[in-house]
């Protein structure tokens, strides 16, 4: 399954028309220990690039943008249960944020793949 990335360090993995979204390992490292995250409610819809969630460490707060347009069909219960550590421990796995039912697969295809993202991060 391919994972794609945005310049704002979100990742997206697509299964059928459902995309799992989270923040990249690089982003989680930059952020440091997560102390809070706010996920959107199931049923909320977002256009690509819209503010979707917030993730915070003790000293910084970052907005998480919808990497592609879609409707929230699931939000990570671990995070809702305040297990913030999972975002640091497994940002690109168990620390996912939401699942989106997507509207436009072309948006997904236009994002960076793993290699392109690795290059992008190297240049930062």
């Amino acid at each position: 399954m391919t994972t794609r990335f945005t310049k704002d360090h979100e990742w997206v993995r697509l299964e059928g028309d459902v995309a799992t979204v989270g923040i990249s390992t690089y982003a989680a490292e930059q952020l440091g220990d997560v102390v809070y995250a706010e996920l959107p409610a199931v049923g909320a819809s977002f256009a690509q690039g819209a503010d979707m969630a917030v993730v915070e460490s003790a000293k910084t707060a970052s907005d998480v943008y919808a990497p592609i347009s879609g409707e929230v069909v699931d939000a990570n219960a671990e995070i809702k249960g305040e297990n913030w550590q999972i975002i640091n421990d497994a940002p690109q796995d168990g620390g996912w944020f939401v699942k989106l039912k997507i509207a436009n697969k072309a948006e997904f295809d236009a994002l960076m793949d793993e290699a392109a993202y690795a290059d992008y991060v190297k240049g930062l």
Binding site: G32, D33, V35, Y36, S57, A58, K59, E82, W84
Partner: peptide
Amino acid sequence: APMRRLDDTRAAR
């Protein structure tokens, strides 16, 4: 100092 480094993460979590 009167205290060593304090754990901000713990305070916020």
